[in-house]
Amino acid sequence: MNMKKIIVLSSVVALLSACGGSGNGELIGVQNRPIWNPTDPYGMVFIPQGSYNMGPSDQDVPFANVSQSKTVSVGAFYMDETEITNNEYRQFTNWVRDSILRQYLVEQYPEEYGTAIVNYADGMETGDYRIDWTKKIRWDDEKVRTILEEEMFLPENERLDGQREFDTREYVYKYQVLDIESAAVKTNREGTATGKRDRSKFLLPIEVNIFPDTLTWTHDYSYSFNDPTTKNYFWHPAFDDYPIVGINWKQATAFAHWRTKMMNSFLRKIKQPTLPEFRLPTESEWEYASRGGLDAS
């Protein structure tokens, strides 16, 4: 009899313990989630949320009846404290250059410069290799020098005084974006008769040559003697901390994507929550930040 009481008591305790682990039936959310401690990204400043009057001020009399002002609310965001510099953008171009070289090396010497791809389902190697960024490039290696000469340097007939230079026309950054606007269209959201849809049609592949147009100093300022600037602005260390010049919207967007990828890859490696993507500011965000908190500036 006593044994039966003990068994019943043990069962009740076990049941209550199980309920306690699930919040006693209460809605408590998913537990053991990563702790999020937001910090200011390096080189960025915090822009608090607020609102301002977009459009002409009281002093813009000629435009008062043409472009009406309106109140715009802007959410909080971070923004780079200064323009992206030549040296910061060069980190991007060098990464693209090195990734192209590494891809050539993996294709020709997979075991030496790559890492085997493992099938997620069975844990077996697929026989293919991908870039292993932990392996250093030995620039004096004959294998590397051969690939540089045959694949990445300018052809001999395009070299100035026979000097070897990288063919920057090959600096192409490839990535994908999710076309959210198309995916949000009602007909696309409804999907097929089975309620499923093919997400792949919203994944847009993008390829961008990311090297800056160094000739912009000449063709944009035709009445100025800017030949020295054209030759040295992006290359010479004296201009490392100067703003990057000669990139378009597509290149700037590609840079933001790479910057996001670089940061979040590091955060995943140390098992930390990832950051929202870096991007270009909207027109409203740019004007709001430029006003510096002044509504009628």
Rank of each mutant, 00 (worst) to 15 (best):
S290C: 01
K135G: 05
G50I: 03
R138I: 05
S57Y: 06
S17Q: 07
P62D: 13
V61S: 08
N226E: 06
E158K: 15
Y173W: 01
G293R: 05
T192G: 11
T260V: 00
T39Q: 13
R268K: 01
D58H: 12
M1R: 12
K196D: 13
S69Y: 10
R33K: 09
Q59R: 12
T134L: 01
S51L: 04
F266P: 00
G246M: 12
R145S: 05
P41T: 10
T82N: 02
R197E: 06
T274A: 01
D40I: 09
R189T: 13
M44Y: 08
D80S: 14
K261H: 01
T274Q: 03
S265Y: 00
L267K: 02
R145F: 03
K143D: 01
L204G: 09
V13W: 04
V8M: 12
M44F: 12
Q176K: 09
P281S: 13
L154H: 06
A193R: 08
Y42P: 01
G292S: 02
K196N: 11
L267D: 06
T187C: 10
N32T: 02
M54N: 10
W139T: 10
V74A: 14
I270S: 02
K231R: 11
E26C: 04
N37I: 06
T282K: 14
P110L: 00
R199H: 05
W217E: 05
F255L: 02
N209Y: 04
